[in-house]
Design a binder for these strands. Structure first.
Lengths: 234, 234
DNA sequence: AAGGGAATAAAACGAATGTTTGATATCTGC
DNA sequence: GCAGATATCAAACATTCGTTTTATTCCCTT
């Protein structure tokens, strides 16, 4: 973001990103956006055609600024050991998601992403190709390097999903986590600690997956074949 | 669930759970529910007071049936090795979330839970205490048993969050995962395989966390103290 | 069989929402 | 300095939504 928004269009985008994120598309009214941006309601339709057009512009705006400020490869250079690259990948993701310079976590635009994961909008398609796919490719290449003898995508893809899943869950279910555990989830000032935890946990997970392909390295290698059936009534 | 719904109240509950899950609270209209349940619109207000009352009833209904069919401790007995208990915990969670006998994943009530994680409703409070807290306590006790020398909740709580996070992300971001990776995410028939993966990954993660408390067991133990600053412009 | 409460149905009401209209203001290039 | 395009504004429109009202039907008890 280059300073405070000045033009009407920018004011609308900033206000809309915040309100869309907090309330969701349907629950957000353009009057509320206009009020928050101190702008006439008709200006929204004038600049963005309709509510959906505004939403699409907001989504692109949010991803653009987020990945511009915190690029996927932030802090990473090719000479680093891949484990270290993974740490920066995770950390940058947390900063992008949760820091106030990024998407501000649950208090703002961060929830837009969660909402898109739940209900992908048409506008999400281009965002996927432009921002998320390269992001995933980078993570996969790091995982290939970490796992040495490449175990193939059928094992590395789920690893990537598990890593991203942890990050997103931490970032987006924060209030529920806090409510259940009674402990605050690390935010803003504790992003480094949180990053390190997920990084350690994930390194251990990757090692277990890559090494334990055969059997025996984990206790009870075939517990899924026990007579427990989900069809049994409790 | 005890057979097909017969009474008007049950018909409304079933239809509402599905539509609320798919569309969200705000985007769901009473008329749409009435149509789907083949019931008059006024019947909804008659039986559930208002839209919020219906939603609260739906939430309780969904959690009750889900945890009745797939209880947290399903398949677990105290004599089992804790690693094995963890497997069943994860597996039961996937079945509850994703199987058609459970919440049906993204195609129905499963998304209600995801929506509540994003925007907790007032009705979610009681559900947290009644269903989710015991669920979390069980997981924690399993983790305590696995980690042997109890490392304390400051390490085990994040482990629990990481495990749950993987499950929920797999379950709820399925279409986006599929779209990005190009591969289908395991569903329905592949829940056992998915459970085993998350189980292995998590066991490795737990081991890394529990063992690596000091330092040195993972490469570059303090990568977060490097000069990389999130304040640097890219 | 009759009476009465519970349940269902159709219609209408008032509030809120996305969008459009037409008038006015502001900026831009010549 | 002025004409034409661009931008902003207040007001109104048509639609949709949750809810209420009122009338009717169903079912159970006496």
């Amino acid at each position: 973001m280059t300073g405070q928004p000045v033009t009407t269009k920018e004011k609308i985008l900033e206000a809309a990103a915040d309100i869309f994120g907090r309330e969701g598309f349907k629950a957000t009214t353009i009057r509320r956006i206009a009020e928050s941006a101190q702008v006439n309601v008709a200006a929204i339709n004038y600049h963005f055609r309709d509510k959906e057009g505004l939403y699409a512009a907001v989504l692109e705006h949010v991803f653009h600024t987020g990945f511009a400020r915190f690029p996927s490869h932030g802090g990473i250079d090719d000479g680093m050991p891949p484990e270290r690259q993974l740490y920066f990948f995770i950390r940058t993701m947390f900063y992008r998601l949760l820091s106030s310079e990024g998407w501000g976590g649950r208090h703002g635009k961060g929830r837009l992403i969660a909402r898109e994961l739940l209900d992908p909008s048409p506008a999400f398609e281009s965002v996927l190709d432009a921002y998320i796919k390269p992001h995933k490719e980078l993570l996969l290449s790091i995982l290939v390097a970490i796992s040495g003898r490449n175990p193939g995508p059928e094992l590395l893809l789920p690893c990537a999903v598990s890593i991203i899943g942890q990050c997103l869950y931490y970032a987006l279910a924060a209030p529920v986590i806090k409510r259940i555990t009674g402990s605050d989830v690390p935010i803003e000032t504790q992003l480094d600690r949180l990053s390190e935890f997920v990084w350690r946990f994930s390194l251990g997970g990757i090692a277990a997956i890559v090494s334990g392909v055969g059997a025996g390295s984990v206790p009870d290698p075939q517990p899924h074949s026990t007579p427990f059936s989900p069809l049994d009534e409790p």
